[in-house]
């Protein structure tokens, strides 16, 4: 990724609270157009909270989050979504009272240029087989994860926030999700990926931000991972 490309998302001094508890203490990072960037860190470091705060659904947030040079810090989540940011939450958020197809078609189109349903079924053949299944939550964990990613690809949002898409999934499915992320990058999507699975992160990302205690403490480009392995192990406590 060249430094010349445009900064799409810029997060500066982002502070966030869950109720009374102060969980983000000034997160700073930026994501350029077309990049895949990961947020790495221990459990409870503030990775998920950062994604929720970008989307505007953490209890309270201050600081600055600009997307395409628009300041979003005072916006409602629905307005932020309509700028073209889409979230795939950690718990996947598949709706049990909706069929697979209804789940897929739920998020409204916010811009032109989203993937067509045919292209989505190309990427996720399992979903095509299961599309008439009566309940979204009857799918396997891997299929639910794919559905959670698939449904935000239709909307025309080009910035995806993926929260631990590989959590608890079998290696073969993790691999499939890796291929999907690579395919999406080729289609021009920009992706922020929260990951615990470091090897998976290294296989798909351009750069890694290390999050600790509610702050970004380091940035490591993917091509400098090897020389930084020891440092990263210290950060992640592995």
């Amino acid at each position: 990724m060249t430094d010349a490309s445009e900064v799409l998302l810029k997060v500066s001094d982002l502070q966030g609270w869950y109720g009374e508890s102060h969980v983000l203490h000034g997160v700073d990072f930026e994501v350029r157009q077309g990049e895949v960037v990961t947020l790495l860190g221990r459990n409870g470091a503030g990775k998920t909270s950062t994604l929720l705060a970008i989307m505007g659904i953490l209890g309270k947030r201050t600081g600055s989050v600009t997307f395409k040079d628009t300041e979003t810090i005072g916006m409602q989540p629905r307005a932020i979504a309509r700028l073209g940011i889409a979230l795939c939450p950690e718990e996947r958020g598949i709706f049990s009272s909706l069929s697979v197809e209804e789940n897929l078609m739920l998020p409204p189109r916010i811009a032109d240029g989203g993937l067509t349903v045919e292209r989505i079924y190309d990427l996720f053949p399992n979903l095509k087989e299961r599309r008439t299944s009566s309940q979204g939550t009857k799918l396997s964990g891997g299929e639910q994860q794919m559905l959670a990613i698939a449904r935000i690809l239709r909307t025309g949002s080009k910035m995806l926030l993926l929260d631990e898409p590989t959590e608890g999934l079998a290696p073969v499915i993790v691999q499939q999700i890796g291929h999907t992320i690579a395919a999406l990058k080729n289609e021009g999507f920009t992706i922020v990926l929260v990951e615990q699975n470091f090897r998976f992160a290294a296989s798909v990302a351009d750069r890694h931000y290390v999050v600790d205690q509610g702050r970004v403490v380091d940035m490591i480009p993917n091509d400098q991972l090897e020389e930084n392995t020891q440092k990263l192990h210290d950060y992640l406590g592995v």
Partner: peptide, 11 residues
């Protein structure tokens, strides 16, 4: 089921 997530989709 989940009003927060539906809102985060832009609804």
């Amino acid at each position: 089921e989940n009003p927060v997530l539906v809102g985060a989709f832009g609804v």
